[in-house]
Design a protein around this nucleic acid. Structure first.
Length: 808
RNA sequence: GCGGAUAUGGCGGAAUUGGUAGACGCGCUAGAUUCAGGUUCUAGUGCCUGCAAGGGCAUGGGGGUUCGAGUCCCUCUAUCCGCACCA
């Protein structure tokens, strides 16, 4: 009987399900010293169909999970749905289907698809963030954070479409217009809720040093958080008010020729009341998106009627409103030093402002030695900075300041499909947090989705009516919902205790299972999700719920799956549906090809189906090889009594175990994992004279090595070998160290850097003898004839003899 | 603009610590088997040169360090990804 993946895979999956083969235990079921492994993959957004990126991600995670299970560990590996967000609401607007209905259907469809891949999830821990049972804990965390003072309200710009009366997401805005209707979009400040993530900015930077993450991801986070050390001090304006600036280059103070303030700066806003030109300028800038403001080379400014006094020279400096100064970084105001800052320089050229050189250095933008700077001349930049802070401490309130590019986490969304923010607006008490007993604050059903006007929640009378928890008088419920990044900032903890109705999760479970041992997901989440999640985890730690400082000890970011060089997307029509591939080749072939095709962190182009033919072919060869074997119970004879062919082959087998173990445990290199296995099969098929016992040993090893990548076939073959249990629970093969030692080694001889001979020598040959053997070797003589030997190098390890010769 | 990466045969890639470049797979060529085949098996396959043995060249371009560089340093070019309201 031959193995037909299309029929067998479903049967095997049903058995796994029935026997709960992948069930992860609770902490209370384990002794404290039970070895555990938490294998986490980024939870998907239920868009409707899984795509190849999901297949890649989940297969990689599954290979590790299955391997760790075979190593005897208890493995946490499960799946959930990041199911709040814009697409469900768009579906509601366009197709008049309720977001919950749309989302439930998508989850059901995608779950079926994922299950066909044979991923070893404990489905009993499945969660979906749109369920009140989940999002009530978002609300609960919000209330705890409110108590700790980690939530605040402030005004910040949003994309505002006047015609629709709606706030738009960045992705909905194209060229300053609403993507759908083409109505213009402006930046408008709006009162919003924030998490004070910047309180943790320093710890978020420092924590990176403790993580086993790829260096590029750490670098991206460091830049995103953007820690810079500088100085804050103030300039006095001629009318007496003071404006505070932040600079990292106080040493250039004598080069200041103007001040530039953000158009949203309170001082500019105040001044525009009596300056029509300024007011117009500010409106123009408000129409630019943040992206335009940062990418545009054009530095736009407006010279106000204000002047500021230089804190040391007393010189009067013009004050500008400028588009390149951002209100949400530093203090929203900069001192303009055209001689030593590129942006200020560009601005000064445009507006014809003095450009002074006050630092001597290799480049105008680098620190150096001060000149033309009064009695600070001659000091180094560092000395001058220090001295100037002292000098300006009283007169200009100068003080060292850490500034971060990281902004506080704005979590308000004027949307329906998200977690309702649990506060009420009371005429007497203001904004008041809901009391915990009232959670969850549920999303109402009586909603009209129009895609225009304020949040859909404002159309529900039942939802709006609330009672002030503080004074008991009628109040209006908050209609903002939370950013969906909140949902994905703690889900891995909920997996551990997914059905708990009186706690987000039991801290004992967190203690037993976290930090997550390995987290795999797309590189596109390198900054936002992975910073928010780290932040949230630290808050949970400070609430006494999570015990580790960092949530994800090891991280792998997989590259994207492309088709013909582009991201697969519906709009491009270049989607390859995993179901079609499984239909034709089976899940094992798809899994095997996915991880073999390319290293994880690289993008992979699904150029066609040629590669997967090879994967399917390999699986058939394995099957035939095992099929041809008649099982025996004879034990493996001692190594000393093996024939030399058998010993050589068994060495290959055990080297392969060694390499694959290394690939799975240390290197996380999956494509080479598969190629080792292919190499092994090639070697096995060449072997002719094997005793049944040796063959039995080899076949048993082979099937177990196959089990993490092609689990269905491995399961079937394991049964055929007469085993009663699942190969999923079989132990990973142990290396017999004796078999790793080779009798002979290959020594390569180089002359002037070129390989001229290869010698096979006994493994215990000393380096000096290798050198002698090399010099004697006949094929080397033409290269040595008539030359003088200048130098011989035999590096440690002794695999190379390098000869340097020159003409005699 | 800022930040992060990548570049090796016809293609995907391997080379784990500076030590045999091209493992493994795809594709292609030839032969065998089957013969309805899109099955299977064997051999070959970086480029140039040579009857052959062999030799030369070769890891995006240029330069450098070294006995030795795909790997380290400098520089240039090309391509891809992220940028805070997509998830």
């Amino acid at each position: 009987m031959t193995y037909d993946p299309l029929q067998q895979e479903a049967l095997i999956q049903a058995q796994w399900m029935k026997e709960k083969v992948f069930r992860a235990p609770f902490a209370r079921e384990m002794t404290p010293d039970t070895p555990t492994f938490y294998m986490l993959v980024m939870l998907p957004y239920p868009s409707g169909r899984i795509h190849m990126g999901h297949v890649r991600n989940y297969t990689l995670g599954d290979v590790v999970a299955r391997y760790q299970r075979m190593r005897g560990k208890k493995v946490m590996h499960t799946m959930g749905w990041d199911s709040f967000g814009l697409p469900a609401e768009n579906a509601a607007i366009q197709h008049h289907i309720h977001p919950a209905v749309w989302t439930r259907k998508n989850i059901a469809d995608m779950k079926k698809q994922i299950q066909r891949l044979g991923i070893s999830y404990d489905w009993d821990r499945e969660l979906a963030s749109f369920e009140p049972a989940y999002y009530r804990w978002n609300q609960w965390f919000f209330l705890q954070m409110w108590k700790r003072g980690d939530v605040f309200r402030a005004r910040r710009n949003v994309n505002w479409c006047e015609a629709l009366g709606t706030v738009l997401a960045n992705e909905q805005v194209v060229d300053g217009k609403d993507e759908r209707t083409g109505h213009p979009v402006i930046q408008k400040p709006m009162e919003q809720y924030f998490f004070a993530i910047t309180k943790y900015a320093n710890e978020l930077v420092q924590g990176l040093d403790t993580l086993d993450w790829p260096d590029n991801i750490k670098a991206m986070q460091r830049h995103w958080i953007g820690r810079s050390e500088g100085v804050r001090f103030s300039f006095e304006l001629t009318h007496g008010e003071r404006v505070s600036v932040f600079t990292t280059r106080l040493d250039t103070l004598f080069g200041v020729s103007f001040l530039a303030l953000s158009t949203e700066h309170p001082i500019i806003q105040a001044a525009s009341a009596s300056d029509a030109g300024l007011a117009t300028f500010c409106q123009t800038i408000a129409r630019q998106s943040r992206e335009e403001r940062l990418t545009s080379d054009l530095k736009l400014g407006y010279r106000t009627l204000l002047h500021a006094r230089h804190p040391i020279t007393g010189e009067l400096l013009p004050v500008f409103a400028a588009n390149y100064v951002l209100m949400d970084y530093g203090t929203g105001a900069v001192m303009g030093v055209p001689g030593h800052d590129e942006r200020d320089h560009e601005f000064a050229v445009t507006y014809d402002l003095p450009i002074r050189t006050v630092i001597e250095s290799t480049s105008p933008w680098d620190p150096g030695v001060l000149i033309e700077s009064g009695w600070y001349s001659g000091m180094t930049s560092a000395e001058a900075t220090h001295a100037l802070i002292q000098a300006l401490a009283d007169t200009a309130q100068a003080e060292p300041m850490l500034s971060f590019k990281l902004k506080d986490w704005g979590l308000s969304r004027q949307r329906y499909w998200g977690t309702p923010i649990p506060t009420v607006h009371c005429a007497q008490c203001g904004v008041v947090p809901e009391s915990e007993e009232h959670l969850p604050i549920r999303l109402p059903e009586d909603i009209h989705f129009t895609g225009r006007g304020a949040s859909p929640l404002t159309t529900s009378e039942t939802f709006l009516q609330a009672t002030c928890p503080q004074c008991g008088s009628p109040a209006r419920r908050e209609t903002d919902t939370m950013d969906t990044f909140v949902d994905s900032s703690w889900y891995w903890l909920r997996y551990l205790d997914a059905h708990n109705t009186h706690q987000a999760f039991n801290p004992e479970e967190a203690k037993a299972w976290t930090p997550v041992d390995l987290y795999i997901g797309g590189v596109e989440h390198a900054t936002m999700h992975l910073i928010y999640a780290r932040y949230f985890h630290k808050v949970l730690r400070d609430l006494g719920m999570a015990h580790a400082d960092e949530p994800f000890q090891r991280l792998i970011c997989q590259g994207m799956v492309l088709k013909d060089g582009f991201k697969m997307s519906k709009s491009k029509g270049n989607i390859v549906d995993p179901d079609d591939v499984i239909e034709r080749y089976g899940a094992d072939a798809l899994r095997l090809f996915m991880i073999f095709a390319s290293p994880i962190e690289k993008e992979i182009d699904w150029t066609g189906f040629e590669g997967i033919e090879g994967a399917a072919r390999f699986l058939k060869r394995v099957e035939r090889f095992v099929e041809a074997h008649t099982p025996t119970t004879d034990p493996l004879p001692p190594v000393s009594s093996l024939s030399s062919e058998e010993k050589k082959l068994l060495s290959k087998v055990h080297q392969t175990i060694q390499r694959m173990t290394d690939d799975l445990e240390v290197r996380y290199s999956f494509n080479t994992l598969v190629s080792s296995l292919m190499e092994l099969l090639n070697a096995l098929q060449e072997a002719t004279h094997l005793t049944p016992a040796v063959r039995q040993h080899i076949v048993e090893v082979l099937v177990r090595l196959l089990a993490p990548t092609a689990p269905h076939l491995a399961e079937a073959l394991w049964a055929r070998l007469g085993h009663a249990g699942f190969v999923a629970h079989a132990p990973w093969p142990d290396v017999i160290p004796e078999l790793l030692v080779a009798d002979e080694i290959l020594v390569v001889v180089q002359v002037n850097g070129k390989v001229r001979a290869r010698l096979s020598l006994p493994a215990d040959t000393r380096d000096a003898d290798k050198e002698a053997a090399a010099l004697r070797c006949p094929e080397l003589q033409p290269w040595l004839q008539g030359k003088t030997l200048v130098k011989v190098v035999v590096p440690a390890g002794g695999k190379i003899v390098s000869l340097v010769v020159k003409d005699a």
